[in-house]
């Protein structure tokens, strides 16, 4: 019937929809334009700036000065402190995320009362405007007016006779360890919804029979977790953590809002140091050089994340 129709009617013209090659480029086009315009151009510009003598007063590239800005960057002790802090804060954030995202996905994979409320609470940080979140965290961690300190004083953990000594405040952002812990906490608070959703999706895709079999064999919670859940979740958990690593390592907002690098240089991180030098300090080319030191780490993590994502898709 079709053959007949084909033979009797005019020959069908091959449209755009039939040309897979052209259609592919057409569909990819907007994404390529976006990436080229908003990622590629700024990236090339940053590389050129880092080899130039541009300043905020004259941000044009008139002259290339070779590796001068890179040499100057690594000669600064604060650069190394910032690099170390960036790596340390990222590591601690990922560690906390791995534990919490796995625990939450285990929790959310089971039926329980108020599950929807818990789900909503977990997603809430995403729905919260950044400015509001910043105000809330600054208030919670304030050196004088922190409600957490007030609470700890009420339950006699702080203050005269308290477990943590006679002082009335913890000074969360004024002590090196607590300041780093505060930044990690806020990072985790921001990243946990994404990580939990990714891991939960992986958790839900583990065949139910595996858990039933383990239950019949008498395996306890931790045995099931360590032998079934975590090995099965590993690819997707790794992808979630690598994406979180990209976001944390290249982020300056948390530090800028909470500590601005203090106390001293204890929480200085590379992106914020680059901003201070390049924009506020006026040394645009120097700031670009500092920022580009993040490239190897970010590129390595990005490649690893994409490979893993691709591999887990294949399997």
């Amino acid at each position: 019937m079709n053959e007949e129709a084909g033979a009797s009617g005019p020959p069908a013209r091959a449209g755009l929809a039939d040309d897979e090659r052209r259609l592919g480029w057409l569909m990819l086009g907007p994404a390529l334009l976006y990436i080229g315009g908003f990622v590629g151009v700024p990236f090339v510009l940053a590389v050129l700036l880092s080899f130039s003598d541009a300043t905020v007063g004259d941000p044009h590239i008139h002259r290339l000065v070779g590796l001068v800005n890179y040499r100057r960057a690594i000669a600064q002790p604060q650069f190394w402190t910032a690099l170390g802090n960036s790596l340390w804060i990222t590591f601690l954030t990922l560690l906390a995320l791995a534990v919490l995202a796995t625990a939450l996905s285990e929790l959310l994979a089971r039926p329980f009362r108020l599950k929807r409320l818990v789900q909503t609470l977990i997603i809430l940080p995403w729905a919260m405007p950044v400015s509001l979140a910043a105000v809330a965290w600054l208030w919670l961690l304030d050196s004088t007016f922190s409600p957490l300190d007030w609470l700890f004083r009420r339950i006699h953990l702080l203050g005269p006779g308290g477990w943590f000594g006679p002082g009335l405040h913890f000074y969360y952002l004024g002590r090196t360890g607590l300041a780093i812990a505060s930044i990690v906490t806020v990072n985790v608070w921001r990243m946990l919804p994404l990580a939990t959703l990714i891991v939960l999706a992986g958790r839900m895709s583990i065949p139910r029979e595996l858990f039933d079999q383990a239950q019949i064999d008498g395996a306890g919670f931790f045995r099931v977790l360590l032998r079934i859940s975590i090995p099965a979740l590993m690819p997707v958990l790794t992808v979630a953590l690598l994406f979180a690593a990209l976001m944390v390592f290249g982020d300056m907002a948390t530090v800028a809002l909470l500590t601005r690098g203090g106390p001293g240089t204890a929480t200085q991180v590379l992106p914020y140091w680059a901003f201070l030098q390049g924009i506020n300090g006026g040394d645009l080319s120097g700031g670009a050089a500092v920022a580009l030191f993040m490239l190897p780490v970010l590129a390595g993590v990005a490649i690893a994340a994409l490979r893993l994502a691709y591999r887990s898709q294949q399997s």
Binding site: S143, T144, F145, G167, H169, Y171, G174, T259, G262
Partner: peptide, 21 residues
């Protein structure tokens, strides 16, 4: 002094002074 002097923003010492601290 206390470690709060490492945590301040531009408004902090004003607030602390007015609060009597």
């Amino acid at each position: 002094e206390t470690p709060e002097v490492f945590t301040w923003n531009a408004a902090s010492n004003n607030q602390g002074f007015v609060a009597g601290s």
